[in-house]
Design a protein around this nucleic acid. Structure first.
Lengths: 144, 144
DNA sequence: TTAGTTTCTGAATGTCAATTTCAATTTTCC
DNA sequence: GGAAAATTGAAATTGACATTCAGAAACTAA
């Protein structure tokens, strides 16, 4: 978390951005939870203690975090973009429960390797990828 | 293609839908091309020869095809949903060029297998998945 | 500290694709 | 042919994201 704040501050400095209490607030709330927040989610959470904060401010901050490389934008196809704090070197993909919406992370180097092979076969250079498995999580299978 | 029309007709019958010239037209245009159409794309293409056709009609037809299992909805994160004809048993994933937008299909059973292993480790039951590699296609690397 | 400059905030508004509405039309079935 | 039901397509609505703008706050230099 300290690393991420440092990275963000450096990025903000480079961009000539000012320090504002709102941005600090949003950054801390964002980093302090393992959640996969949509703008809406984080906005509603922050409003509880900071009723004056604006949706646009939260939205701009999250986009900024993504630009600075301390957040990744996720799209699980439900019409809402989610943001996840990015810990350097901790790439992972997601298991998304279609029943309860829970999100679990996974990482499988052998898949990444095969991906590279596939790309190489097509003369394709991978910049990024998206790999999501949708289905029922262990809890929802039980309830099934 | 005949299979898909048969599947669709059966699905339409079950749903108590009527046969209309527009839907037939849209279905044929959709199946007759390997493209990954957005509603907009297909609408514009159809309008050339059928100026009276409506956007909503095309949109409804494509959603219906997806419901009937002869099309899959794709979202490459560019703000437009694309539809691809689904040939039974021919699952594949996509390489998406971020430069020219070209879409190439790939299939790698070993990745599918590893996916299942990952899911099993988490007690997760996969219903569907999404796996996309974004980057530069061979043509765009050359132009680079 | 203070004046001056620049950025930021937040309410409101704009944008864009997806979706819905509804009156007119078409299909289906008797 | 005619009634009932579904479909069409223009227009309006929705919903998420993005932008605008006037006032507020943060920096900068003297």
């Amino acid at each position: 978390m300290k690393d991420q704040i440092a990275v963000f501050n450096e990025c903000a400095r480079r961009k000539g951005l000012k320090n504002t209490s709102q941005r600090t607030l949003i950054l801390k709330a964002f980093l302090s939870s393992p959640s996969h927040y949509s703008t809406e989610d984080l906005y509603l959470k922050l409003r509880k203690n900071h009723p004056k904060i604006g949706y646009a401010t939260v939205h701009r901050a999250l986009k900024l975090f993504a630009e600075c490389g301390i957040a990744v934008e996720l799209d699980f196809g439900d019409g809402q973009t989610r943001f996840e704090p990015l810990t350097i070197g901790q790439h992972h993909d997601h298991l998304v429960c279609t029943e309860c919406g829970s999100i679990t992370e996974f990482s499988e180097p052998r898949i990444e390797e095969l991906q590279e092979q596939v790309a190489a076969q097509h003369g394709f250079k991978i910049e990024r990828h998206r790999h999501e498995l949708y289905g029922l999580c262990s809890k929802c299978i039980g309830r099934g």
